[in-house]
Amino acid sequence: MRRVVRKFSRRVPEWRPRVVPVKLEEASEAQLEALSVTPSDTKVSDYVLTLAHDVESLRVRSPLFNAIMYDKGGMSRSEREIGAIGASMVNRCIYCAAVHAARHAQLENSTEIIDRLSLHGRAAALPNRDRAILDFAVALSEAPPKAGPEQMHALREAGLEEAEILDLILSTALFAWANRLMHVLGDPVRSDGGDA
């Protein structure tokens, strides 16, 4: 039996939609194009098939996601992941948090920061720079946003350049978006029944 996962970790769960995803065999031409389905590659996740219900949004969101998280310059990829994790902790999007925690660990070749966050949440002891980044991401992700001059000052004190701060705003904001799809339209589940 698959159970809903409620605890933050870097073990990526499965995602079970709360709505019926588009069936690939019934997809329109526009949906197939947005899904990037080709005769040799027909593997599409339930999440993407769910978003295919709104094909105009799906088409523009994927390139925007990739640009914000992966474009060269500015903030490092692993620090952008902290922005994603901060937003996902606030919105309790377990699936997004796990995916981006795993990615942070992979990019850093270390699970230390993520394990501390899993164990202690926002109160985890972090290096100064990561602390300022996480605090800003968390404050910006509250609704209404709580980020103010104090958090902005802390980022600059921690040595972040303006281009890096811009990337942090964008990566955190992107997960205000992603969390509201992933966490709202489905559940993170695991078939081994564990609640971790």
Partner: peptide, 25 residues
């Protein structure tokens, strides 16, 4: 239509976060 509502809501959350962040900067 539920997915469309969620996409609208999600985009606004992104836009509001960026507006807030850029204003602070």
């Amino acid at each position: 239509d539920i997915v469309r509502l969620s996409e609208l809501n999600a985009f606004l959350a992104y836009q509001i976060s960026v507006v807030t962040g850029l204003r602070l900067m």
